[in-house]
Simulated scan of single mutants.
Amino acid sequence: MAAIIITILLTVWSITIDAPLEEPANPSVTPNPSKAPWYFLGLQEMLVYFDPWIAGVVMPVLIIVGLMAIPYIDVNPAGNGYYCFKERRFAILTFLFGFLVLWVLLVIEGTFLRGPGWNFFMPWEKWDPHKIVALTNVNFPYLFGFREYWAQAAFGLFSIALWYATIPAWYIWRRATLVNVGFTRYALKAFLFMTMMGMVAKMFLRIAFNVKYVLVLPWLNI
């Protein structure tokens, strides 16, 4: 019934409302802002928080590989053949968080809240093409007083290792997860989950403290 209702709504919507098409492309005029199609705006929005090789290559690959790996790393028989939330609370909430927050929300933000210069505008603000936002970006180790290059690199490596190790280790200690799924499955599951949450942490650091990189190396910036 729900599928029928949605189909009817989409059909009526597509008939009564014209598609928001713009004028033909003009190679002599560059729109400001220049936006990708809406289904790629999540990736374009990620470029604000990550380098292109992460936002455009690493993260999409991890999303695809992670979705492909779900049947192999999720061996919980609960929910097979029937719908349930209580027995699969963590799995369902994790998927919804990744889809709604890390994809749909980024698409909405890139579509409606990014204006000229890819500046952030609230819905009630006018898109001013002359808006300039003065930002002083710093690296994460700089906030803790590390000024030397290799000291910052060492602290960045330590921070990332701590991020990937602490919470999964605590969860093992609390729940004895390895007994149920095995080390390989749990390690892969923990890596994908902590990477997803690491994206949120990096976005928060960027918005709240203007942190550009957590780790800076001659050949790698994260």
Rank of each mutant, 00 (worst) to 15 (best):
F99P: 03
F99M: 10
F99Y: 12
L100M: 04
L100P: 01
V101Y: 05
W103R: 13
W103D: 15
W103M: 15
V104A: 04
L105I: 02
V107T: 13
V107Y: 04
I108S: 09
I108N: 08
I108A: 13
G110P: 01
G110K: 00
T111S: 07
F112P: 00
L113R: 05
R114E: 00
R114V: 01
G115A: 03
P116H: 01
G117L: 03
N119P: 03
N119C: 06
N119K: 07
N119T: 03
N119Y: 07
F121K: 00
F121N: 00
M122C: 07
P123Y: 03
W124G: 08
W124D: 10
W124V: 07
W124P: 07
W127S: 11
W127K: 12
W127T: 08
P129M: 00
K131A: 08
K131Q: 07
I132Q: 15
V133T: 10
T136E: 15
N137R: 15
F140C: 10
F140S: 07
F140E: 09
F140M: 11
P141K: 00
P141R: 01
P141Y: 04
P141S: 03
F144Y: 05
F144N: 02
G145K: 04
F146W: 04
R147V: 09
R147F: 05
R147I: 07
E148A: 11
E148G: 10
E148W: 08
Y149S: 01
W150H: 02
W150P: 01
A151G: 02
A151R: 04
Q152C: 06
Q152V: 02
Q152Y: 02
F155W: 06
F155M: 06
F158N: 08
I160G: 07
L162G: 15
W163D: 03
W163T: 03
A165Q: 06
T166M: 13
T166D: 08
T166S: 14
I167Y: 14
I167G: 07
I167R: 12
P168L: 03
A169H: 05
A169S: 11
A169T: 10
A169F: 07
A169G: 05
W170C: 12
W170Y: 13
Y171R: 09
Y171W: 11
Y171D: 13
Y171N: 11
I172K: 09
W173I: 10
R174C: 06
R174Q: 09
R175V: 12
A176G: 13
A176N: 15
A176R: 13
T177S: 05
L178R: 11
L178G: 12
L178V: 14
L178I: 15
L178Q: 12
N180D: 12
N180K: 14
N180Q: 13
F183M: 13
R185K: 11
Y186T: 05
